[in-house]
Simulated assay, not measured.
Amino acid sequence: MSVFDMEKQKKILVLCGGKFAFQTLQLLAYEKFICAIGIGKSNDTIIEALERESEESNIGFKSFPNKKSITGMRSWIDFIQPDYIFCISFPFLLPETVLSYGQDKFINFHPGPLPQYRGPMPIFEVLKNQETETAICVHFMNARFDEGNIIFNDPITIETGDTYGNLTAKLSERMAQVALNVANMIQFASIIPSQPQDEKLSYYYEKPELSDTYINWKRMSASEIISLINACNPWNTGADASLYGEQIKIISATLLDLPHNSQAGAIVSVTNTLNIACEENQQIAVEILSTDSGIMTAKQFAVLKPILTNDLIKI
């Protein structure tokens, strides 16, 4: 008989926010760790799918659609009696009345390095800031977002051209293995090491607003603009800009290292791409954009609109 067989299997309740946690849920369920699933606000299709899977697997399930519903969480946890609670993109802050269920029983899996990238959308922020590496930070929870003692940061390389969508997919896949590693840690370790966050390095990013997703042609370099476009694809349907008084979103673009004699934000040329002047004598080649008429290629856009060179995307 293995050591694992002799140990009583730890019971883990997972609080999540949707499909980002699906691979983790599947792996933890396969390894017999999950005893219940709680989901925060999400669409009906995801909620119904998780509830159905939970019933078929004889796992507890509860939906928490809004902040007010958190008042019933503690009694539900008391009924389930988990050994630990894992949080993966759960949208609501847990109050002390819930956290008092047990010291160091709540563990959060934050999709960004801490303490540098606190906040609800670290994937957007690391891409916008042109980081070459991000992380999944595993930390104990307290009554403030992303401030509990860190167990470890699991680093993940950001590849050139990564968008919000494919980086999210990579993090979701890696999250499953990280969560299983932590589950095995709490199964066998007598103590889980952790350390306080260095507040000198901490920064909290609020949820992005229009000013955060808008391209400023005069103040941003070509590489910064490309990074912003990738950071906004697909959650914001691209980075925001304007043309002919119409709000557009640039979904896909590449760096075009060609000189120009135009003002930043001006259209230099139109081929299969919409080539726009940037600072530092560079251009970006816009490939796909979204307009009031729909999502289209730059070439399709050029057919619809009377584009002239030196037209300004944004003054």
Rank of each mutant, 00 (worst) to 15 (best):
A266H: 07
F145N: 07
K249T: 01
L127F: 10
A21T: 05
Q9I: 11
S57H: 06
Q9D: 07
K11Q: 14
R174M: 03
S262L: 09
V14Q: 04
V14L: 15
K314Q: 06
I191Y: 11
A264R: 03
N166K: 08
N281I: 04
K207P: 05
C87N: 12
W235Y: 06
N261S: 13
M296Q: 12
F61A: 07
L312G: 07
K170I: 08
D146L: 10
Q283A: 02
S194R: 12
I229A: 07
Q283C: 15
L255F: 10
K207I: 11
N281Y: 08
T160L: 07
G60P: 04
Q130L: 09
E51L: 08
Q103W: 05
L15V: 02
G17N: 00
R74D: 10
Y30C: 08
F124H: 09
I59C: 09
N108R: 07
T157N: 11
G72Y: 06
G148A: 10
Y205R: 06
E51T: 06
P208K: 11
P65Q: 07
N230T: 05
R144I: 14
L243W: 14
I186W: 01
Y84W: 05
K200F: 10
L27I: 09
S63M: 03
L27K: 15
Q116N: 10
Q103I: 04
F22T: 08
F152K: 15
S227P: 13
D83G: 05
S194I: 01
